[in-house]
Amino acid sequence: MLGLLKGMGVTLKNMTKKKVTYKYPDEPVKMPERFRGIQHFDPEKCIVCNQCARVCPTDCITLTGRKHPDPNKRGKIIDTYDINFEICILCDLCTEVCPTEAIVMTRNFELAAYSRDELFKDMEWLHDNNTKIRGGSQ
């Protein structure tokens, strides 16, 4: 009987304590600096080395490049760059290997969509996803 009452005491005490729940989605949840969210992609920086696509454990990056239009410059520039967020596990490996930081993590994480097709993000979308970039300001 005593044990029961003790337990009742604990719940009663907790009743007046501070609540710990977040007000999400009314207030956005602040994620830490290192958070691995949806990537931001900068086509200018990309040198089409294909390392990110190779390291990706789920093969969700597809990219194509073409010769640099300026004949004096060597190397390639990126043509298309897609990440399939149906299977991307946000593991951070692509951003880890990228030599030029063309692909970086952001702190955005809201990916919910009504259709699977919407989860297929192209270069433009990834480029526009330019808020809360890891290592950036704010």
């Binding site: 005593l2 044990g3 029961l4 003790k6 005491g9 604990v10």
Partner: peptide, 10 residues
């Protein structure tokens, strides 16, 4: 306190 002494749990 909450469970370990609770007779029902025991």
């Amino acid at each position: 306190d909450l469970v370990a002494g609770n007779e029902i749990f025991l």
